[in-house]
Write a protein that binds this DNA or RNA. Structure first.
Length: 1038
RNA sequence: GGGCGGAUAGCUCAGCGGUAGAGCAUCGCCCUUACAAGGCGAGGGUCGCAGGUUCGAAACCUGCUCCGCCCACCA
């Protein structure tokens, strides 16, 4: 963290590399001091946009899942704020009942060797509060390090006074409405945590390998026995019936008879129950233990059977278990089997796979336990919550979660809300000595039934999720009718992990609708889980938790945030690898250096110049168009919660287009004498950067704020107080013509670079003889205009032939045929005919391949008939283009073959090739090596042969080896039906460089533009078709 | 037992009817005065398997195989 005091940012020259430690940390305080984080409940001019932060456990510390939550929400909040919304992002923490209590208990044992019982409830609670005070602030610090623009003035805690009041209000109201009741019934009990749990807190272990053990109950009348099976033998001590199916002929005779318990001696009946018993399973007879099995409990109710509890709350057998009293339930299991075996009543044992309920927190096998508990009657609350989603009042993103939510809501059981813990909201119910219950908002003076003044408050506390379920409105001051509620409820977005859709989201829906009469949020965006590199969920128990602060310190908060955003695609979990973060840290550095470059080239900068009006060159107009497209796509992506697309769009623009292309292109103007072009380039650079900062700010708040201010100061003016309050770039029409018309320039530069690479001519060696031709009128004009830039970026001297004319044919040249141009690079003596031959061949085979596919399609009458006209038209044009390209390439190849032929027998015709004089004049660095080559032996026949020629040419051996290696491949592929048609040789050489290069750079604009001719017509159509749909969908929800 | 995801380049993942993409890794060439946390170029894919729909399928449908997750009171 920096100690800087940056009220005013530095305006000195930027450091050579971006150091996040020097920048982050300064800005957060500035933002906070200026009150930017505050949501204004009295603002009626701007539309509200609110999010409540899912409250982390107060004693916990943030992991990467939290960092993701904070990042995505901050992106939304900052974006909306910049887009003119009155934003509120409300922070807080959760008391996390059982989790916190256990942490403190453990600590207590460790440090003082005491249990909570040793301290007593009041003292223990004091300790928990102290713990909370000590560690609670950690969460805040972590969020601040991440740059989260949370409104700290409104920070809440689920057990603070206001929220506790809300909890009591809700409890009492629901009680009064008959929606909360107390009942002695079977619940899931954790013998270790010593508390009841809700259904959701039960983890079902799948496929637990258990045992199905059967034994016989002797009939009391001595007429025989009935064999039953169980996976939990110890529960037989609490059996109060044996059930059979009423239609089961085998047992008809014994229904109504009594059996005698072989251990306790109790007698109980054989009953008939068609719901419980599946005659096909096991023996068709079932032992019934109403006090320890959910099914049996129902049977007990149906048949009026007694429920005998044999296992105590601590998991040990109680006095009802006769001889097994005080034994642990698992020990008792063994002993019951032993005793029964000794009695000769055991019958069978076989392995049995069964689901096993375990405590979510401590993994202990749960015990169904009969006890008094408080419940929320859920059906009346669930129904409206179902309807709200059906009616689209709240929608889920990704949509698939709607089903999950619905399925759960429709099968929901009553919610057990009482917990036998100390840490939490103590249930506002009081008992008088007569056992009457008084439920009240504040401690009552007397029993509401009998008036007794002797009252004892219910000791149980509420499930921690009870208070969380009120979070969207309790944090805004409910039950008071506050301005905050009025302005910011319902919240705009609930953004959280899908793991708590039931625990939290569903319950907030129910409570919000019930108490506010309105859904708590319009959109639920459920983000993926962050997993470790192995794909495992990060959890404290697994020990694979990564502290975001460690990452932040190492790579910077911006890098972490951007990485998380870039990886947040809908529908898949995030496996976070360090390399990814490193990559995006490099991106931050790139942005830094792009700014640094600009700052170094601002002399003569003209303040107030409109970049669009100033634009002088095709390159200028191109980058401005690309910028606008990036803006459009980013906004659209954010609008649809496609964080990865937003991140990637900006990344591609800044790095690939602005830095790799425009900055390089702009050097021509910046270093040149044309003042007009120079100030235009400066204005455009500044404009692109400034816009990029704004685009990027929600994702990378620190570095963008720093650079924005630095650049503003350097260009002689302030753009505003802070980037945080600047306006987000607005979508608008894209100058597609500007995008398109620049493509030949990019194509030409890439083609030259490609030839350099393939021919092994280093960049520093100038190419003196480059000709560009076959340009149509408009392309010709552009290329001519951009000649200087082309030359700079390819380090070549370029001649442009008249529009429509091909470059002159000349030997000793490499040739590239791109979309809309043809290029010849004279390599003088440096030409490696074998390499060039191979290169052309490779290209030709690619053309051939593409052509074959397209022609086959076009030859198919049903395609021509049934495919959309534009698709057919596109393919026709493409086909034409490919044929043209093939023609040109073949011509070039013929020439190469001729040249190679001449090598075999040097003849006068060789003069048409590079004159030797030229070789002498402009020898590329390695050219001399080529000279002795001439007149070698071995007459190559075709170019393939040539390629394989191992002759010791100047061309390194590997070059020759390459095609050979590739040639091996087709053998593998040949079987593939689709490709079988082509000559194997051609299949082998697939890569067509210019095509590839053009595709790559033609940059996304070109792709998306319905360009003339064969260019990307289809793709844009697809994209357009998809995106607007998404957009409207997104809008509907608001 | 129900349900939901996933399977695409060596790795991590986008794309989800119309010419297979990114980042990282790999290979080659460059310390070109913004950036070596860099630049330029290249290689690399029967888009899990089998059927089907379609003029056209990585994408849609059916089945299957493997992963992962959620829900579930069959003794």
């Amino acid at each position: 963290m920096s100690t800087g005091t940056a009220q005013e940012p530095r305006t000195t020259e930027l450091a050579k590399a971006y150091e996040h430690r020097d920048v982050e940390g300064r800005w957060y305080r500035v933002w906070m001091e200026r009150g930017y984080f505050h949501g204004d409940e009295n603002d009626t001019t701007r539309p509200p946009f609110s999010i409540v932060l899912p409250p982390p456990n107060v004693t916990g510390s943030l992991h990467l899942g939290h960092a993701l939550t904070a990042t995505l929400q901050d992106i939304l909040i900052r974006w909306k704020k910049m887009s003119g919304f009155n934003t509120l992002w409300l922070p807080g923490t959760d008391h996390a009942g059982i989790a916190t209590q256990m942490v403190v208990e453990k600590e207590l044992v460790k440090t003082e060797g005491k249990s909570r019982h040793d301290l007593g409830r009041p003292e223990f609670l004091k300790r928990v509060w102290a713990w909370k005070e000590r560690f609670g602030s950690r969460i805040g610090e972590q969020h601040q390090a991440l740059g989260a623009s949370l409104d700290w003035e409104r920070e809440r805690f689920t057990m603070d006074e206001g929220l506790s009041r809300a909890v009591r209000e809700v409890f009492v109201t629901l009680y009064e409405q008959g929606l909360i009741y107390r009942e002695k019934t079977l619940i899931n009990w954790c013998p270790r945590c010593h508390t009841a749990l809700s259904d959701l807190e039960v983890n079902h272990e799948e496929g637990h390998k258990g045992e199905l053990w059967s034994f016989a109950y002797p009939l009391s009348d001595g007429s025989g026995e009935v064999v039953v099976a169980t996976t939990r033998p110890e529960t037989m001590l609490g059996d109060t019936a044996v059930a059979v199916h009423p239609d089961d002929e085998r047992y008809k005779a014994i229904v109504g008879k009594m059996v005698r318990h072989p251990i306790t001696g109790r007698e109980f009946p054989v009953i008939a129950d068609s719901i419980l018993v599946d005659p096909a399973f096991g023996t068709g007879a079932v032992k019934v233990t109403p006090a320890h099995d959910f099914n049996d409990f129902e049977v007990g109710k149906r048949h009026g059977l007694p429920a005998i509890t044999v296992i105590g709350l601590d998991g040990k057998m109680n006095t009802n278990a006769g001889p097994l009293v005080d034994q642990d339930r698992f020990e008792a299991r063994k002993n019951v089997k032993k005793i029964i075996a000794e009695l000769g009543l055991d019958r069978e044992s076989k392995p049995h796979v069964l689901p096993l309920g375990r405590c979510q927190r401590c993994e202990t096998v749960l015990e169904p336990m009969l006890s008094w508990q408080w419940f929320v009657k859920i059906a009346p609350l669930a129904q409206p919550a179902i309807e709200a989603v059906e009616q689209g009042k709240t929608r889920f993103i990704p949509e698939q979660w709607t089903n999950t939510y619905m399925a759960w809501m429709r099968n929901i059981h009553d919610w057990c809300i009482s917990r036998q813990l100390w840490w939490g909201h103590q249930i506002p119910a009081w008992y008088c000595p007569d056992g009457h219950v008084t439920v009240a908002r504040e401690a009552p003076q007397a029993c509401s039934t009998c008036g007794s003044a002797t009252l004892r408050q219910e000791e149980d506390v509420l499930d921690t999720w009870f208070s969380s379920s009120l979070w969207p409105f309790s944090t805004m001051g409910w039950p008071e009718k506050t301005r905050t509620l009025q302005t910011f409820y319902p919240t705009s977005v609930m953004e959280t992990g899908h793991d708590i859709i039931f625990f939290w989201v569903a319950r907030m829906m129910m409570m919000g609708i019930h108490f506010m009469g309105e859904v708590p949020f319009r959109t639920v965006y459920l983000h993926p889980m962050v997993r470790d590199e192995k794909g495992q969920k990060m959890s404290k128990t697994k020990g694979n938790v990564i502290d975001p602060l460690v990452i932040t310190e190492q790579y910077g908060a911006d890098a972490l945030r951007f990485t998380l955003a870039a990886l947040t695609a809908q529908g898949r979990d995030i496996k976070l690898a360090k390399e990814r973060i490193e990559g995006y840290r490099a991106f931050a550095n790139k942005l830094w250096n792009a700014t640094r470059f600009t700052l170094m080239n601002l002399s003569g900068f003209t303040v107030g110049l409109d970049p669009h009006k100033a634009a002088r060159t095709a390159a200028d107009r191109w980058i401005l168009a690309r910028l606008q497209r990036a803006v459009n796509e980013t906004v659209e992506a954010l609008d649809g919660f496609h964080f990865n697309e937003a991140a990637n769009t900006v990344y591609q623009f800044v790095w690939r287009e602005l830095c790799d292309w425009y900055i390089e292109l702009s050097k021509e103007a910046l270093y040149g004498d044309d003042a007009e072009k120079k100030i235009a380039a400066q204005a455009i650079l500044v404009h692109c950067l400034e816009t990029s900062y704004r685009l990027l700010h929600p994702m990378m708040p620190f570095i963008t704020e720093e650079l924005w201010n630095t650049l503003a100061a350097q260009v002689g003016g302030r753009w505003g107080d802070s980037l945080m309050t600047a306006a987000y770039p607005k979508p608008g029409p894209v100058d597609e013509d500007a995008e398109r018309s620049f493509n030949p320039v990019i194509g030409v530069i890439e083609a030259i670079r490609n030839i350099r690479g393939e021919m092994n001519v280093p960049f520093k060696t100038p190419l003196a003889d480059v000709e560009v031709g076959a340009l149509e009128q408009s392309a010709h004009a552009t290329v001519a205009q951009e000649k200087g830039r082309i030359e700079r970026l390819s380090n070549a001297t370029v001649a442009i032939v008249a529009a429509g004319r091909a470059p002159t044919k000349r030997g000793g040249s490499a040739v590239a045929v791109g979309e809309g141009f043809e290029l010849r690079v004279g390599l003088a003596g440096a030409i490696d005919l074998a390499a060039e031959s191979a290169r052309i061949d490779k290209e030709l085979s690619k053309v051939e391949q593409d052509l074959t596919g397209i022609e086959r399609k076009l030859a198919n009458p049903s395609f021509v008939e049934r495919a959309p006209a534009e698709v057919v038209e596109k393919d026709r044009a493409r086909s034409e283009e490919l044929r043209d390209k093939r023609r040109k390439l073949e011509a070039h190849r013929a020439m190469l073959q001729e040249a190679e032929g001449t090598m075999e027998t040097p003849n006068p015709a060789a003069e048409t090739i590079t004159p030797t004089a030229q070789v002498a004049e402009t020898p590329p660095p390695e050219a001399p090596a080529a000279a002795p080559d001439t007149g070698e032996t071995t007459p190559p026949q075709g170019e393939a042969e040539t390629a394989r020629q191992p002759k010791a040419r100047r061309a390194p051996a590997k070059k020759a080896a390459k095609p050979a290696r590739k040639a091996a491949k087709p053998a593998k592929k040949a079987p593939a039906a689709k490709k079988a048609a082509k000559p194997a040789k051609k299949v082998a050489r697939k890569a067509a460089k210019p095509a590839r290069a053009a595709k790559k750079t033609a940059t996304r604009g070109a792709k998306k533009t319905a360009a003339r001719g064969a260019k990307k017509v289809a793709k844009p159509a697809k994209k357009m078709a998809r995106k607007p749909a998404r957009k409207t969908a997104a809008k509907r929800g608001r």
